[in-house]
Design a protein around this nucleic acid. Structure first.
Lengths: 205, 205
DNA sequence: GTCTATATGCAGATAGAC
DNA sequence: GTCTATCTGCATATAGAC
């Protein structure tokens, strides 16, 4: 997992990310992180002062990887259809490569929601672009009588749920076969876009 | 929150549930739980021996409340339509009353998946009834070319996501208005069933 | 059963040599 | 920058009085 070319700080971030994601802020031990990074425990404090600051650094690195990419997909000059196709396929691609990110983000959602909300609001036009895009829903231009937040919740729920519930879902419905579950995940983009298409314009069927 | 009629053991379970749900197993402090229950810290150990055993007891009490009710809705003698309507509305009713349960369950999903899977498999016919019900999907009798697990993931994702993401979703899309979000949640049953109806039988539109 | 006081262990953090 | 050794505080857990 670790690149020999990484400097110490990067090695720590990489290792800490794995441990924090697996165990959470409270569950992780600095010793574990040090072991994982193959350095000494004291070095963690030398670089990041405290466990909490290290956690913050790791979390920021993670969302700084996600949000700019995600944000760029939400282009209000495109149609909702196009954007949706872009987002859903990006999401699934990103999540297949970073399957533990949702867990991580949900931890922050519950522990530091205000801080996270502030961060997201600071993302250039992120929220306003979403609102712009979902206007057709509010205006009743596409076939649904519900507010656009339902639309967003539906899409995000369908995208993220299989990653969040993997340990149990894979055991119960895939006889705990990793490969089968990976295959299942790879099909999600198509499935979700299909749902979306049936939803927004059933009259075209 | 606490009923004066509760005996000590029940008071502890009630208090511990609130604290564990809010802070997680590692984040919760026995002192906090004792304070919440308005008893002494030592009593926690008198009744439950250790923090972990207390957590297990609390978690078991929670899922023992959920699963029998949920399981009873999954009646394979009914049609998929009927069952779906029953489940989605039960889910949302249950989650409105127990909004923190998903968080709690997802903690266990990641920390002790095997244990949780075993528990669910032990629920009388739970899995086999689900498989029975989703057979029409596998057999292609309803209009979808995807395996039934996608169907389950879609429904569960749409049901659970708004509860899991509440702290951030409410802030970003509801100006942090509790009441508006409660209203939003109360609309979910209808929205999800509507999606489901469009999905399974678009030709009837 | 319920309390106060105490023991025990461990994790985060620091000091200081190299 | 990196290490070993050490300190400090705190959370779980126990002992023992009532």
């Amino acid at each position: 997992m670790q690149n020999k070319e990484q400097n110490t700080e990067e090695k720590i971030i990489t290792a800490a990310k794995e441990i924090f994601i697996e165990k959470g802020l409270q569950g992780a031990r600095m010793q574990e992180i040090a072991d994982q990074a193959k350095i000494n425990k004291a070095l963690l404090h030398y670089y990041f002062r405290s466990k909490e600051k290290l956690f913050d650094a790791v979390f920021e690195a993670s969302i700084n990887d996600l949000f700019p990419k995600l944000s760029s997909k939400i282009d209000p000059s495109k149609s909702l259809d196009e954007v949706m196709a872009g987002i859903v396929s990006f999401y699934n691609k990103f999540l297949i490569e970073n399957p533990f990110i949702p867990q991580f983000i949900f931890h922050e959602i519950w522990q530091h929601p205000e801080k996270l909300a502030r961060f997201i609001r600071e993302q250039n036009n992120f929220i306003s672009n979403i609102n712009e895009l979902t206007k057709p829903i509010e205006l009743g231009e596409i076939k649904t009588e519900y507010k656009s937040q339902h639309f967003i919740a539906n899409i995000l729920g369908m995208c993220i749920f299989p990653y969040l519930s993997r340990p149990i879902f894979q055991r119960l419905f895939f006889e705990n076969q990793e490969d089968d579950y990976d295959q299942f995940l790879s099909e999600r983009t198509e499935v979700i876009l299909n749902v979306f298409n049936q939803l927004s314009k059933p009259e075209k069927k």
